[in-house]
Design a protein around this nucleic acid. Sequence first.
RNA 1: GGGUGCUUAGCUCAGUCGGUAGAGCAUCGCCCUUACAAGGCGGGGGUCGACGGUUCGAGCCCGUCAGCACCCA
Length: 937
Amino acid sequence: MDKTFDPRAIEARWRDTWERSGWFAPQGSGAPYSIMIPPPNVTGTLHMGHAFQHTIMDSLTRYHRMRGDDTLWQPGTDHAGIATQMVVERNLKLAGSSRLDLGREKFVEKVWEWKKYSGDTIENQIRRMGSSVDWSRKAFTMDPSYSEAVIEHFVRLHEDGLIYRGKRLVNWDPVLQTAISDLEVVQEEKDGKLWHFRYPLAGSARTQDGLDYIVVATTRPETMLGDTAVAVHPEDERYKHLIGRKVKLPLSDREIPIVGDDYVDREFGTGCVKITPAHDFNDYALGQRHKLPIINIFTHTAAINDEAPAAYRGLDRFEARKRVVADLEAQGLLAKIDDHKLKLPIGDRSGVVVEPYLTDQWFVDLTRKTLDDGRPGGWTAITEPAIHAVEGGSIKFVPENWSNTYFHWLRNIQDWCISRQLWWGHRIPAWYDADGNIYVARNEAEVRSKYQLPDDLPLRQDEDVFDTWFSSDIWPLATLGWPQETPELKKFYPSSVLVTGFDIIFFWVARLVMMGLKLHGDVPFREVYVHGLIRDSEGQKMSKSKGNVLDPLDLVDGISLDELLKKRTTGLMKPETAPKIEKATRKDYPAGIEAVGVDALRYTFASLASPGRDIRFDFSRAAGYRNFCNKIWNATSYVLMNCEEQDPNPDGQAWLSEADRWIISRLQKVEAEAAEHFRSYRFDLLAQTLYQFVWNEYCDWYLELTKPTLRGDNDSAKRGTRRTLLRVLEAILRLLHPLMPFVTEDLWQRVAPLAGKAGPTIMLQPYPTAQPEKIDETAEADVEWLKAFILGVRQIRSGMDISPKITLPLLVQDAAAADAERIARLAGSITALTNVQEPLLLAAGEEPPVSATSLLGSMKILVPMAGLIDKEAELARLRKKKAQTESDLAKNLARVSSEKFVNGAPPEVLERERARIAQQRQELAALNEQIGKIEAL
RNA sequence: GGGUGCUUAGCUCAGUCGGUAGAGCAUCGCCCUUACAAGGCGGGGGUCGACGGUUCGAGCCCGUCAGCACCCA
C-alpha cells in the first residue's frame, strides 16, 4: 500500500470501472427510488453550486442503491434558450460575426456545435465528481423525443383552452429582442431623477391658482412622446375640476385628456401623472379603464419609431431622453429636477433595462377559474391543484418553510408568457394562413387534417420558440418517455426527491408540479430538498464578473496562482475589473490552490449542508477533509499490516476485549444515527458523526487500544481484535461511501476479503444498519472510565512537561472496589497508552509519597514527584484546577440554595445537582490536601 | 411597504427534548512514539446580537429592537 493517499490515482482507477460495469443503472429488487437531475444549462461549465447539488444527489443515490432500492439518477442537460443563445452570440461577436450575418439556420447549427462542446464539458465534470448517474438514459431538452413531448405538452394545454395568443404588454428585452417573463426581470434600485414638466392646458382651462399649465412628474421623460392622457386623483381638490379638460402635449402637438383615476397617488410628485399606456404596466391598465389610445413609440431595439415626431425618430431611448429634456427646457417647460431613487426592471440575462412593450405572444392561462365555454380555467385546472399538492402533503418541502414561498407565488400568479423571439429553442407548433388565422397541432399535416384545410393553402409556422422553462417543466415526464406509458414512467414517476436551490422554486419547482399534475395526474416528486447557495469566503455570491468563481475541479486537482489568475481574468464582460480581481485572488490564494481530491470536496459540501443556510465556502474545511481521507488511508494501512497473513487459523476461537466490544457497540449507535441523518437530509450531521467516530473513536482510541493486544501473545484475543479491526473498518468504509466514493471503494477492495465480504464493488454492498443486540453499555462504560484514567495521567505528564519517553511509576489511592477491579482488568491498556509502570494500589490509610495528582471520581491517580517533577508547575496546575472546581461549586450551591429551584425542579434534576455538589466538594478537599503537601516540600 | 432566514470561540459552522455550550481550522506547549507530521498528546479561548417576558431553570420558547442577507411588491 502506498505510504500516502493519492486521490488522483484512485479516482482515475474507479471512475471508469464503475461506469463500464453498468452499476449506475437501476437494478435491485427493492422499491423504486429516483432522482431527476436539475438539468444544467449548456452555457459552459459547471460551478461550485452544481458540484454541491450533485454531491447531495449522489450521496442519496448511492445510499439508496446500497440499501437495495431500484435506484435511478436521471442525467441530462437543458438547452437554456436565451442563456445559450447569448453565449453563442457573444462568441460570434468576438469572431467579428453576428447572428444576423449567419441567418437562422446557420446560427442554430453554431449553437448545436456549442452545445456539443459545453455538454461534453459538463458530462466530464459530472463524471469527475463521481456522480453515479445512469448515462444510458442521458437526455437533452432538445432531443427529438423530448421535443415531441414539449409539443404534446403545448397542444394538450391548447386543446383544453388553457393556452391563448394575445396582444399584451410584456417585458421586452431590447438587446435580446424578445419577450421575457416576469420572473426573468429583476428589480434594481438606482439613483435617478424625477423631472417636473409643465403641460399647457388646452383652451380656457386654468388651475385653482389661475395657472395655464399643470406640472407632471416623471422618471422617464422620453415616454411622453407616447402619452395619451394625464391622470389625477378623482378626489384631489387641486385638480378635480380639470378632469375632462385637455392638455396640449408638448413636442408632439397632440391634445390629450385629463382623466380621474384613484390609481394616482396624490402625495407622489405633483399629483399629476402622465399616462403612456404602451410603455408602462400601470398606465396600460389605466388606459384600458379609460379606453385611451395606445401609442407605441419604440422599435424592437427601444429606439424611437415613426409614431413620434420626426425630430426624435431613430434615437436610442436614452438619447431621446436627453433630447426631450433639453427641448422642454428650451421651451421653458422644465419646472425642476429632483433626485429620486427608483427601481429599474433589468433583464436577468442581458442586464439591460427592459421595456414594457406591446406585442403578440402566447400565454398559459393560470388565473381564470372558468373558461367562457364553461370548461375549467387555468386557475382551476393547473394552479390550484399545485397548491393543494403541497397543502395536502403529497409534496413535502425540506426545510418545510419553503412551502410558504411556494404558496405565496402561486396564489399571486400571473398568466405565463411562453413565447420567445429567439432562434434557439423549440419552435411553437402553431401555423398561420394568409388571413392570420391560427392553427395549432402537432405538425403541419395534422393541422391540415384537424382543421380540414386544403392541401394547397399556404401555411406559415410561428417563428417563435418556447420559453425554456416551458420545456423543462416536463423534465421528469419526458425523460421517462412521456407521453408514452413506458415501464420506466410507471416505475420511476413520481420521483423520490427533487434537490434544488431556492432560486428556482418559481421558475421550475412550481411549474414542474403544475404540469406534472396537469399532464400526468400525479406530482413529479414526493419531496423537495432545498439547499443553500455557495458563496465565497466573504459571503459574496460567486460570479464571473466578480472574479470570485471557483471551478470545482480546480479544488479537486489543484491549480497554480498563475493559472487561476488567467482563468479569472480572461473573457470578462468588463475587462477593466481585471486588476481588482487579480488583487483579490492573490490575497485569497497566494500560492494557488492545493489539490484536495473529489472525496474531500464532496465531504466538505456535505458537512456544510445545514438546512436553510447558504454556504460560505472555506478552503480550510476542504483541506481538513483531505486530511481526513488521508487518516482513513493510514488507518487502513495499519489494519492491513496487522491483519493480513497474520493468523494461520483466522476462523479459530476469538475473544473480544472491552475495547473490541466498545467499538462494536459505538458502531451500532453511529449506524443508527446515519440512517436518521439520511432520512432527514442532515448531511452536515451525517458528515460530523462519521468524522467524529472514525477519527476520535476508531483511530484515536480503538487503534491505540489494539496495539498492546496485538503485541501480546493471547491468540484468541488477537484474533478477536483483528476481526473487530477489520469488521468495523469495513463497515466504516460502507458508511462513508455515499459521501466519499473513491477512497472508500479503493480501500474496501483490500479490506473486504479479510472481513469476510465478497463482491465486485462497495457500491452494491448493503449500507450498514444498526444491530441493537450488539450495543454493550458495560463495555462502553469501561472504556469511558479507561479514557478518563488515561487522560488524568497524560495531564500530569503534559502539565509537568515530562518527556513521553520516561516511563513513570503510578500509584492509585482511594480506589473503590469497582475501580480496583477495572485497574486490574485494564492495566495493559493503561500502561501501553500512557507509558507508565503497572499501577500500584495503595492500601487504605497508606501514606503515599509526594506526588502529582489527577482525580477520577473519588480516586486519586498519583505520579510520585521524586526527581521528576517541577514543584511550582504542579502547584500551578493544581491551583488552576482548584479555582475551576470552586467556581463550579459556587454556582451549583447557589442554585440548590434557591427555594424556587428546590421546589420547582423535578426530583431527578435535583438529585443530579446534589450528587454533582458532593463530587465537587470531594475533589476540592483532595486538591487542597494535595496542594498542602506540595507546598510543605 | 410585506415576508423569510441569519447573528454562538479569531475564522467557518453544529447545538435534537429547555437541564452547566461543541467541532474543524487557526492558536499555545510538548513530541519525527513502528498507521498517519496531511500526524500524536495536552492546553488556552464564549456576556450565545441587545433588552424584556415565560419557566425552578433559556443559546433553545414568546415579545420588542438592532445589524446582515435574501425574496416579494
